[in-house]
Design a protein around this nucleic acid. Structure first.
Lengths: 194, 194, 194, 194
DNA sequence: TATGAATGAGCATTCATTCAT
DNA sequence: GATGAATGAATGCTCATTCAT
């Protein structure tokens, strides 16, 4: 059974993730990506224009898997605040279940690499998320705060906690997790007597 | 008037911060640090053992200035919840007023550099912060959540927002800021009817 | 209508000339020759043993077209000095009308490529040229100088001028051209009162 | 006795000339230049910005030595046509005595490298040459042909012949040489009965 | 202290050539 | 004949670090 083209590209991406999560962008030479992928150094350049292009492709790939994960289970079908709770838990669980992806994302987004956000904005799952948030604002459930603020108070907290968990300095059980998700909800929720 | 030793060391650190904030660790060769600092390449190695040591020294330096900044104004003298509010605003304002330091910190803490947390723990201001948090927990003001969780729900949010502000995708006015600080407080606050 | 074998070989040669004239031997990868020729990289190796072989074949091809061009119009039928004048003008006009060929020839002949002169010597048109020169020497029209000297004083001048014309730093009108051809004749002509 | 900085730069240039004359630009890796120069690969980049810069510097260096050589012996002090004769012989002898320089110059000037002619034009010796030519034109000794034409009919012939001599396909004795120089003179000379 | 020339291992990338299909 | 993915050695260049002065 032969390795198909798609497989080879995928293998290279997976290897790159492995290595970067462990050693960082600059601790990951292309030669090592090649060797660990079981391919020649040259062939990487058939699939990716450059090292930067490879990294960017990996970023897009992970981001797409992440957005699919957090919107899994059609949260729109749940009432408020259960859908928020589900999304938050989805995000947290994605991060904890995918430590390499998490480490990569944080490294990438805090690096001085020029980021191209256009792809993120075009993602269907992100569009669903934004629509849901907006409807919750319109319904008066959550405060009319700027999107980045809402993000930091919820998913931003999730990734921060996940990083601690990955580093082994934190271990939340199911109850603590729900309590924390709840804390995030409370942070953005419109108070009834407001 | 000669540049003193302390000045030269300080100059090197400042230059390094400039360059790393703009170009990242690996976009910042020692030769460039030397040239922009107005010193020779060799002399840097009198003050710092290696590039890694220089970066770590810079990290400690910034972290110390950060902890001093967030605990400025003796927040212990204020009652709950004002002291929390003040610390949160101090942190946020430090980040926004020091974008290079913020960018550096995030890059460093998300890099695969081996971090040595011992110094952070020994910082006096951090000790004061921890003590204050603990007393608020003991007094029943805030929830008995793990420290990393409390951190993410408060200062973690502050730096996340500051990064958005630095990137120009967010501009919080004073009212929005206090509202956000308030949201953080609510997230960790024990509900009275609990 | 299919592209025949001859056409494909010819297309590859033409493309190679295009690219080398513009970018030089080493600025012309085989992959680019393939792409621009509309063929696969592999097939080039059915027609040519190697890149060097391709370049040498191109050289021979151009050289043959060149020798045909300079001996066009059966100059042997003209009396001295008209036949020399015609050959010189033929050469000059070939160079100017074929700038890519000219650039290629000069690049090739001044490169450290191992040249094989045997083919040039076997060319019929060159044989005709040499015979004509020899008869002019025997007839006492031109000086008994070594062939390379006669060449440099005549056709060597033609290509040098053509390169200037190609580069746009010279523009000879018909009169100036004939005057120059005449200067070349004078350089090699036996003086009557000698 | 230490090798001085000037010596090292000069050594690198000389080595580069050696290698390029033998193997061409692309057959001359920087690593080989370094090894043969007895220096590290890196240090070359202290003296030259890039391989291209090294080659261009070598070109300028040779061109300056060439122009000094052809104008040696203050030809202006000699009457017409002796001064032309001297310059022509100077050029020819420079080429024959410096085969590597000759091969390099021809390779460089026929390569697709972007040439910068500004330096050549600013050369003092070239200015002297141009002035001398102009005065000969004004005095009615030589024809008012465009400079490139005069060049091809004289020095262009010299380098062409020198290349044949270097390749061993020609060996002019002193008499033949003067005869050839004379042929060049005749080519550009205004005929007295004109 | 201070300099900056020098080192040399390491890296991203290219490209002639091959070969399974 | 024809394809183009695959190879891997080779290349130009960088940069942390050293050391003679």
């Amino acid at each position: 059974m032969e390795t198909t083209v798609a497989d080879k590209r995928t293998t290279i991406l997976a290897t790159t993730l492995d290595l970067i999560a462990e050693n960082g962008f600059h601790g990951t030479p292309m030669s090592q990506v090649a060797k660990r992928s079981g391919v020649s150094a040259g062939i990487i350049y058939h699939y990716f224009e450059s090292k930067d292009d490879l990294i960017e492709a990996l970023y897009r790939d992970i981001k797409a898997r992440w957005s699919a994960a957090i919107m899994a289970g059609t949260p729109e079908a749940l009432p408020y605040p259960e859908h928020l709770q589900q999304i938050w838990l989805n995000a947290y669980r994605f991060y904890v279940a995918h430590p390499q992806e998490t480490v990569f994302l944080e490294q990438y987004e805090n690096s001085p690499y020029p980021h191209d956000w256009s792809n993120v904005a075009q993602d269907d799952n992100m569009a669903r998320l934004f629509a849901l948030i907006q409807s919750d604002i319109d319904a008066g459930y959550i405060r009319a705060l700027p999107l980045p603020v809402l993000h930091e108070l919820t998913l931003g907290v999730a990734i921060g906690l996940a990083k601690h968990q990955i580093n082994g300095v934190l271990d939340l059980d199911e109850a603590a997790l729900e309590q924390t998700a709840d804390a995030c909800r409370r942070a953005i929720e419109r108070e009834t007597y407001d």
